[in-house]
Design a protein around this nucleic acid. Structure first.
Lengths: 145, 145
DNA sequence: TATTGTTATACTCTATAACTATA
DNA sequence: TATAGTTATAGAGTATAACAATA
């Protein structure tokens, strides 16, 4: 008999509850979850190609195209052919895109505080630190699967 | 600018990596993820109706039917009409079902230890305790959404 | 010939609606 | 008429394959 619930059995429903609760928040800014994820990672991830970028955010190159189209039309990102290899597209945030990203992320994290504030400050910080470590380590631990 | 990654942005990819890594483990026992979830909860959740049971495990009544059929055919669960209301079906684990559930869960948690063993024992226990608390609280915190 | 981005297609998962049997 | 279970249908999300442009 198990002495604890499965890790995944606790984590997956919690993660889904969270993301479902965040969709209405993003909608206030006209953002989908994938659109938000693109904005979030555009500064951090070096953007060599759309395919590599898609892979870095856990999508694939065919799925993000509609979202890139939308973000570009709204002036939130730029997408221009790389002069040194005109097959590739250089993606970048515009100033407007960065402002929207920061505003949306503040709203998202404010919404997450509704849950996190249940925890004392020390426990909350410990939890976030450990979670971050596990999230970074997991892809390597389970790489061969 | 954010001082931490979004909670959901850490948790959802981690949860998906975990569940993907667990699918091959379940497959060794001839179980799908939903089949496993059914076995896991059959003793704990009071089974009034299939619809209520499905809701309790985060599914809906139409989705679990094929899995119930399979588990029943393999002698892992019983599903008989309730004598007091022959519309309803009484679900229960068989002895064989309980054995398979315990064996599979042991394998699942062993696989999760590959990740959790990165943490010192104290940090690991703290993390699991906090995660459990958040997982239980989240549905209520975000209930109105 | 190989690669980038795009489009087209198929497949899986999930949600909704219709059906039957009991009440 | 209402409810439990089932089946059928439709939709969303995702993966795979084919295509045009560039290298």
């Amino acid at each position: 008999m198990a002495t604890r619930p499965d890790l995944a059995a606790m984590m997956l429903p919690l993660a889904r509850t969270l993301t479902n609760a965040e969709l209405p928040v993003l909608e206030r800014f006209g953002l989908t979850m994938w659109g938000y994820v693109v904005l979030l990672h555009l500064d951090d991830e070096p953007v060599r190609t759309q395919a590599a970028f898609a892979d870095a955010i856990g999508a694939d190159k065919t799925r993000i195209i509609d979202y890139l189209d939308d973000l570009q039309e709204r002036g939130l990102i730029t997408r221009v052919a790389d002069p040194s290899d005109r097959r590739a597209r250089l993606l970048a945030l515009t100033a407007k895109g960065r402002r929207l990203r920061d505003t949306a992320q503040a709203a998202i994290q404010h919404n997450e505080q509704r849950l996190l504030q249940l925890l004392p400050a020390t426990e909350r910080q410990r939890f976030l630190r450990t979670l971050r470590r596990l999230a970074e380590a997991a892809p390597e631990v389970y790489a061969e699967d």
